[in-house]
Computed example of a mutant assay.
Amino acid sequence: MTSPVRLGIVAAAVALVLDQASKLWLLYVFDIARRGAVRVTPFFDLVLAWNTGISYGWFSDQGPVGQAIMLAFKAVAIVVLAIWMARSTTRFATIGLGLIIGGAIGNAIDRLSYGAVVDFALFHAEIAGKTYSWYVFNLADAAIVVGVAALLYDSLFGAHAVKAP
């Protein structure tokens, strides 16, 4: 196993552990369901949202069959990403792929355990008396976004991109 692949596996494990630990703590220790929305800063709240869909709640009304299809699709995607990671030779790409894999597995665990993904982080801003909110998300979602950013960076500025005509 190459050094970059080991880094990708570590990134996946760290993303998965942090994601699941944060969700378990918020659900069973902090008891966010009972507390409701908790203001942490003027621009960040902890809220409980059960996402039965995929990104941004898309396909949230598909029922058990739709959930099973989404999980099967996610399993195939994780295998494809793992193969890509095993063949990758750059640190940014393998770490990025590891973060995406760890985040995808974390959200898949939620779907299997609860039938929905546990989302809890809400950023918002008040401008001219009107509140603008971002989507509620979790650490798995954040790991996926950072992983995609790492892949983009690697494809645009990595060693292979620099050599390309």
Results as ranks from 00 to 15, higher is better:
residue 25 W to T: 14
residue 38 V to S: 04
residue 142 A to M: 14
residue 127 I to R: 15
residue 23 K to Y: 02
residue 114 Y to E: 02
residue 66 G to T: 09
residue 114 Y to D: 02
residue 84 W to M: 05
residue 79 V to M: 07
residue 58 W to V: 15
residue 41 T to C: 06
residue 92 F to Y: 11
residue 44 F to W: 14
residue 95 I to D: 00
residue 135 Y to N: 04
residue 35 R to P: 02
residue 99 L to C: 07
residue 48 L to G: 03
residue 122 L to N: 11
residue 24 L to S: 13
residue 89 T to R: 13
residue 128 A to C: 04
residue 59 F to S: 15
residue 49 A to C: 13
residue 93 A to P: 02
residue 117 V to N: 06
residue 131 T to R: 14
residue 82 A to H: 03
residue 75 A to D: 10
residue 63 G to I: 07
residue 75 A to Q: 09
residue 127 I to P: 06
residue 34 R to C: 08
residue 56 Y to D: 12
residue 53 G to R: 01
residue 86 A to F: 12
residue 51 N to W: 00
residue 63 G to K: 06
residue 93 A to R: 00
residue 107 N to E: 09
residue 40 V to R: 05
residue 61 D to F: 11
residue 135 Y to M: 07
residue 50 W to R: 09
residue 84 W to V: 01
residue 85 M to L: 11
residue 105 I to R: 00
residue 25 W to G: 11
residue 138 N to W: 02
residue 54 I to A: 15
residue 30 F to Y: 12
residue 129 G to T: 02
residue 131 T to V: 13
residue 110 D to Q: 07
residue 119 D to K: 01
residue 87 R to S: 11
residue 74 K to E: 12
residue 89 T to V: 05
residue 57 G to M: 04
residue 73 F to E: 09
residue 113 S to I: 05
residue 118 V to A: 09
residue 45 D to Y: 08
residue 61 D to V: 10
residue 99 L to A: 00
residue 74 K to C: 11
residue 39 R to G: 04
residue 142 A to N: 06
residue 33 A to Q: 15
residue 33 A to H: 13
residue 57 G to Q: 03
residue 115 G to D: 11
residue 121 A to E: 05
residue 132 Y to F: 15
residue 49 A to L: 15
residue 85 M to D: 00
residue 110 D to K: 01
residue 77 A to E: 05
residue 114 Y to I: 01
residue 64 P to E: 14
residue 48 L to K: 08
residue 138 N to S: 08
residue 114 Y to M: 03
residue 25 W to S: 10
residue 111 R to N: 13
residue 137 F to K: 03
residue 117 V to H: 00
residue 42 P to I: 07
residue 56 Y to T: 10
residue 20 Q to Y: 03
residue 23 K to T: 01
residue 53 G to I: 01
residue 120 F to Y: 09
residue 23 K to I: 05
residue 37 A to T: 13
residue 70 M to G: 08
residue 32 I to E: 05
residue 112 L to E: 07
residue 43 F to Y: 10
residue 118 V to R: 03
residue 76 V to N: 07
residue 141 D to F: 06
residue 77 A to C: 12
residue 97 L to Q: 02
residue 124 H to L: 14
residue 52 T to H: 13
residue 23 K to C: 01
residue 109 I to L: 12
residue 94 T to L: 02
residue 60 S to I: 07
residue 36 G to L: 08
residue 58 W to S: 14
residue 51 N to Q: 08
residue 48 L to N: 02
residue 81 L to D: 00
residue 53 G to N: 03
residue 130 K to V: 15
residue 92 F to I: 03
residue 59 F to H: 15
residue 49 A to E: 10
residue 96 G to E: 00
residue 27 L to I: 10
residue 135 Y to H: 07
residue 93 A to M: 03
